[in-house]
Design a protein around this nucleic acid. Structure first.
Length: 906
DNA sequence: GAGCACTGC
């Protein structure tokens, strides 16, 4: 879109400036809604700036759901306002150009959420604008929830904060009707769009399965029958996109290409045959001459105005020529003269998110002279990327989505119908530069059955990370969330690291005491400082030993970045490409085996591959050539590198003495380091533990090479792409389970059985502590240990030495060891002064003496049941003198200094 | 023995 002032003057929003600014002046929260093209994102911040909302050293914040949008909008607004990027700036995860002069700051929604963690009241801001709120992205939802509170808190402090929520039309009820969010519904200001009208054509019938084939036929017809203008096709996945590209290129070869070769794939030959047949039919039908239709002359409303109107219009306008306009064109197009040249080459390009950026960039360039652009895309083209020059949209009506099972943690991918809002968004892509047409490959009746909106993201994704973040903000209840389903989702979430499957009764109990009501632990607080999933954050928090941090950071970064390796299984466009792909597949598989190594190293499994890939790639200077040769996605590699940088900074902030830096020549971990890393990974991914099935279960063939997890009754398998696929270790932890033809574990790492009781005690349901061997004090860790027998069948082994279970008995044992002088050496000398034997501590409450009881109470009050907790209590409260309570001292004689002083040396 | 859409800290 142009940024000239002339263009700007056409924006409908400019006439609404006064209305908007008055509403903002009078209300703390205002909703502005308008479709894409209304100019709200670029203009509203300017209105606020001009009205002085960035005076007094404060700034106007604007959040966007995508990084590219934050950057692009900051640049465009700076240009329109004739201000430098020092004043109109952006901030995204890894970078930003904000300065002390910044007045308007565009940022991704996650960035503002992090800022709330540092300054809950956002005192630097006078206005916060949440853009694209209708998309209901997780962070946007959470921000709106938090901001509804922050606005109230700021009002109390007489430092008012204005909140503007910007949304596409229709979906404003989510915000206005939510009483929990806004006691008083905020005013809604509607803004017109500058979008060109798009005529929507429904299929009469809906193809049951072959929507790809239907897309192919529709594109062929459009290309042969309709005037110039780009075509955008929506499909669901990479493979489909490539397959359709191949068929279309074969049907409309580039000018110089040789005529079709004999060994062409059957499907495309078949396609051509059918297509020729339909042309013959068309020739016959042409007898009854049809009126020449001016495609750009119509009165149909633009997409998004409600389907009833649209359908009514269609019946009126097109009833005379049949309700399916394109079909008529298709059947009547054999009219040599006025028809566009059917031999016009088609410039076919694929587009999906994981496609290399330089290939993505092709779609933004004008097609070669004398050709028509045809982009075959996935959902990226729906919101993330806007392709210029599109006049025709072909919408298969389907979308591929990821599904999470919140109980089992298994994800799967399914193709479903899109929502009405998505379908309208897709249609709108045809009206960016001129009036356009959208061909829906399904009937209007089917459209009527679509969901109105896609479900908000927060209802369909794991939420442990959000819970952790909220707890770090000391938010105990979470009404700020949007909608009851979300609330339910948060409340029913299984706590991270909690004992797996529970009987129904305790499950209900757990539901009632939502995890949010429990305070955050020290570990949790450390974890919250790391901007990665809690399981990975836990790994980082545990890695400050044996020099493991740099490796853990590299592994966590690589696990967080999606699809480090390129997808090489895609259908090839030609025989030549197929051979090339085959060669690369073999090369990459070989490299993976090399990176995994042998022995101890191999046991780290797929995470060793990630570590090896990151290390080797960095060592080679992260060149695109290295990535290409080893099947690594360059973009993902760069993202991993930036994330490593961010995590290194985060770790240094939490623990400055670590003095970490990113070493481009990082040496591989030693054998013992690899083993420590496996233990760290085991602790972090602890709730993703699986055990190979036992021989007695192997009678059934479906259990061959299978694993059992505590949450699933069905077998799970190591994914064939894993380097541990053939190793089949007895115990593994995994990154995720994806269900395709089977349930497959990905990102697998081998675990030693004897680690489990220590690293994952919640996995073993133990009997109560054994009396023999007796509980003991561990001088190394400062904790009380005991032996416990395992109760859970199927996870056998001898009684394990584990932490004494939490509770009063732990205090009793700790008190005893304290009195014996095991905890603080200094106290040993005073054994003789004790008025009671240390073992008195182990008596039941009723039989405790007042002095022993008073010691126990003091310890419990300070949560001191291990050495570290005791030392922390003393640091917190230097006057805390254990055993000096009303019940009298445990010690007699020369202890004026108190036990604390005696322990100082310890 | 394999097939994953999209996005943010």
């Amino acid at each position: 879109m142009s940024t000239t002032s002339e263009e700007r003057l056409k924006l409908p929003i400019l006439s609404e400036e006064q209305v908007i600014m008055e509403a903002v002046a009078e209300h703390p929260i205002v909703i502005v809604c308008g479709e894409t093209g209304s100019g709200k994102t670029t203009q509203v911040p300017q209105f606020l700036y001009e009205a002085g909302y960035s005076s007094d050293n404060s700034i106007i914040g604007v959040t966007e759901p995508r990084r590219v949008a934050a950057i692009a909008m900051s640049q465009r607004v700076a240009k329109e306002m004739n201000l430098s990027q020092r004043v109109v700036s952006y901030q995204i995860r890894y970078e930003g150009n904000a300065t002390e002069d910044t007045k308007i700051k565009f940022m991704t929604d996650g960035v503002l959420l992090k800022e709330i963690q540092k300054d809950f009241l956002l005192l630097r801001y006078k206005v916060v604008i949440i853009d694209e709120a209708h998309e209901r992205s997780v962070y946007t939802d959470i921000l709106i929830g938090l901001l509804s509170r922050i606005v109230a808190l700021r009002a109390k402090k007489h430092l008012p904060l204005k909140l503007l929520i910007m949304s596409a039309t229709l979906r404003v009820e989510d915000f206005t009707q939510n009483r929990r969010l806004f006691a008083e519904p905020p005013p809604v200001i509607k803004v017109d769009s500058r979008q060109f009208p798009v005529t929507v054509h429904f299929n009469k019938r809906t193809p049951l399965e072959d929507y790809s084939g239907e897309c192919f036929r529709k594109v062929c017809k459009i290309h042969r029958m309709l005037p110039a203008g780009g075509i955008l096709v929506f499909l669901t996945g990479q493979a489909e996109v490539h397959a359709l590209c191949r068929r279309l290129r074969k049907a409309f070869p580039p000018p110089r290409a040789r005529p079709q070769e004999k060994e062409d794939q059957e499907d495309s030959a078949e396609e051509m045959r059918k297509f020729k047949k339909s042309r013959a039919r068309a020739k016959k039908a042409r007898a009854e001459a049809l009126p020449q239709i001016n495609l750009d002359h119509y009165s149909v409303l633009p997409a998004g105005e409600g389907d009833e109107d649209r359908e009514a219009e269609m019946d009126d306008e097109e009833g005379a020529v049949g309700s399916d306009l394109d079909l008529d064109l298709g059947d009547d197009g054999e009219d040599g003269g006025e028809q566009p040249d059917a031999s016009l080459p088609l410039h076919v390009l694929p587009l999906y998110s994981l496609l290399a950026p330089e290939k993505q960039a092709q779609v933004f360039k004008p097609p070669p002279e004398g050709t028509r652009l045809c982009v075959v895309a996935t959902n990226v083209a729906e919101t993330s990327l806007t392709i210029p020059g599109i006049k025709y949209v072909v919408d298969c009506g389907k979308v591929k989505k990821r599904y999470y099972d919140r109980v089992t943690g298994v994800s799967s991918f399914r193709v479903t119908w899109v929502s009405q809002a998505s379908a309208d968004q897709r249609a709108g892509r045809a009206g960016r530069t001129e009036p356009g047409h959208c061909y829906r490959l399904y009937s209007s009746a089917v459209f009527g059955d679509f969901e109105q909106f896609p479900p908000p993201e927060i209802t369909r994704r794991p939420v442990e990370d959000l819970i952790l973040q909220m707890k770090a903000l000391n938010i105990e209840k979470f009404p700020p969330a949007l909608g009851p389903s979300c609330l339910l989702g948060l409340a029913s979430e299984r706590p991270l690291g909690a004992p797996p499957p529970q009987p129904r009764t305790s499950r209900v109990k757990q539901l009632q005491s939502s995890r949010l009501s429990r305070p955050i632990t020290t570990l949790g607080r450390t974890m919250a400082a790391f901007p990665v999933a809690p399981r990975y954050a836990k790994m980082l928090a545990l890695s400050r030993q044996h020099g493991c941090l740099p490796y853990a950071i590299a592994i966590v970064a690589a696990m967080t970045v999606r699809e480090l390796f390129e997808e090489l299984d895609r259908p090839a466009a030609s025989e030549e490409e197929l051979a090339k792909l085959k060669g690369r597949r073999a090369q990459v598989a070989q490299m993976k085996r090399t990176w995994a190594g042998q022995g101890a190293s191999l046991k780290l499994g797929d995470l060793m591959v990630l570590l090896g890939a990151v290390g080797a790639c960095e060592y080679a200077g992260c060149t695109p050539q290295f990535c290409e040769a080893n099947g690594l996605r360059y973009k993902a590699v760069m993202e991993t590198r930036r994330l490593r940088g961010q995590l290194t900074t985060a770790v240094n902030a939490v623990c400055p003495e670590a003095g970490l830096f990113m070493d481009p020549k990082m040496q591989p971990p030693t054998e013992s380091q690899v083993t420590y890393l496996r233990q760290i990974v085991t602790a972090g991914l602890g709730d993703h533990l699986a055990r190979r099935v036992q021989s007695e279960e192997l009678l059934d063939a479906k259990w061959r090479n299978a694993y059992k997890t505590p949450l699933l009754d069905d077998p799970v398998f190591i994914h064939p792409s894993s380097v541990l696929f053939k190793e089949l270790p007895e115990f593994v932890v995994y990154q995720e389970i994806v269900e395709t033809t089977k349930m497959y574990m990905k990102g697998v790492c081998a675990v030693e059985m004897q680690w489990i009781p220590t690293l994952l005690p919640s996995y073993c349901q133990f009997d109560k502590p054994l009396e023999e061997p007796a509980p003991a004090y561990c001088a190394e860790t400062g904790r009380v240990l005991c032996h416990r027998a395992r109760r859970r069948p199927g996870w056998p082994g001898p009684p394990a030495a584990v932490d004494f279970p939490q509770g009063i008995d732990r205090y009793k044992h700790f008190a005893r060891f304290l009195l014996e002088g095991q905890v603080c050496r200094g106290l040993a000398a005073y054994q003789g002064c004790l008025l009671s034997s240390p073992s008195t501590m182990l008596k039941t409450w009723a039989r405790l003496q007042p002095r022993t009881e008073s010691l126990l109470r003091a310890l419990a009050a300070e949560h001191a049941d291990c050495r570290d907790a005791l030392l922390a209590a003393w640091t917190r409260n230097p006057r805390c003198e254990l055993g000096q309570g009303r019940g009298g001292s445990m010690w007699s004689g020369p202890t004026e200094a108190g036990p604390r002083a005696l322990c100082a040396a310890a």
